[in-house]
């Protein structure tokens, strides 16, 4: 369970988030949508303890991220990019993460296999393509077999095969009772994967509910999204 509670973030004089609240529940895939710069990444970064909130809280099972006992086994996170040093090999990157969480080395080979990186594991991260970097990020997130997944743009840069894999993978994770929170721009893709939708615009939540509730009278999620995020939302709602 992820609970975001009236989160406010100021950066210099700008207000990035102005008191947003929503929940991501176990057993469901929650999609987090919004235009570029709306505050999606900032929310996820605060949730993961990377940035500090000006006020409000972002809790994981009722605790702030930094108070988790062994975070890797509770929360798997993949933000934009691989999150790895260019000069290391993919395997070396996963190995130090495994060490930090006290996981056996065999687990590294397992996640390499799951994400289809076994053949590229000995290459430097700097030589990876965008999609391979994404897969490496996913591999790191899955390393601790966590009950909660937080993914920023997980399908960005993936090939069609990878996209389909992510979709079925996230569905099975959620159906076995795990929590999945993912941000994305790809409406069509999202509509097929998520159960709940949260839409953010200029640091404020403009829609929060199940997929059906958010789509409402609109024909598709995409239509609903544009109605909610364009300048004059009154016309369509």
């Amino acid at each position: 369970m992820i609970t975001i509670n009236s989160l406010v973030k100021h950066r210099r004089k700008q207000e990035i988030l102005s008191g947003i609240s929503f929940k991501a529940r176990p057993g469901r895939v929650t999609g987090f949508l919004g235009p570029n710069g709306a505050g999606k990444s900032s929310t996820l970064r605060i949730l993961l303890g990377l940035d500090r909130a000006t006020s409000g809280s972002a809790l994981i099972n009722g605790k702030p991220f930094a108070e988790l006992d062994n975070p890797l086994t509770r929360v798997g996170a993949a933000l934009d990019g691989a999150g790895a040093h260019r000069m290391r090999t993919g395997r070396a990157h996963l190995c130090w993460i495994a060490r930090a969480a006290g996981l056996p080395r065999a687990r590294v080979e397992e996640v390499l296999e799951i994400t289809g990186l076994t053949n590229a594991a000995g290459k430097r991260v700097g030589s990876y393509s965008l999609g391979m970097g994404k897969r490496l990020g996913m591999a790191a997130a899955l390393l601790g077999d966590p009950e909660i997944l937080v993914l920023d743009e997980p399908v960005n840069g993936l090939d069609p095969e990878g996209i389909r894999w992510i979709r079925t993978f996230l569905r099975t994770r959620a159906e076995s009772g795990n929590t999945v929170l993912l941000s994305s721009h790809l409406m069509g893709e999202l509509a097929e994967t998520v159960d709940d939708v949260v839409i953010i615009k200029q640091g404020q939540i403009v829609a929060d509910g199940t997929l059906a509730e958010v789509i409402g009278k609109h024909p598709t999620l995409e239509e609903a999204y544009f109605a909610l995020t364009t300048e004059y939302p009154g016309e369509n709602v």
Partner: peptide
């Protein structure tokens, strides 16, 4: 480099 700090701090 390459955003590794995010990985480090989430682990």
């Amino acid at each position: 480099t390459g955003g590794q700090i995010r990985t480090t701090l989430t682990v």
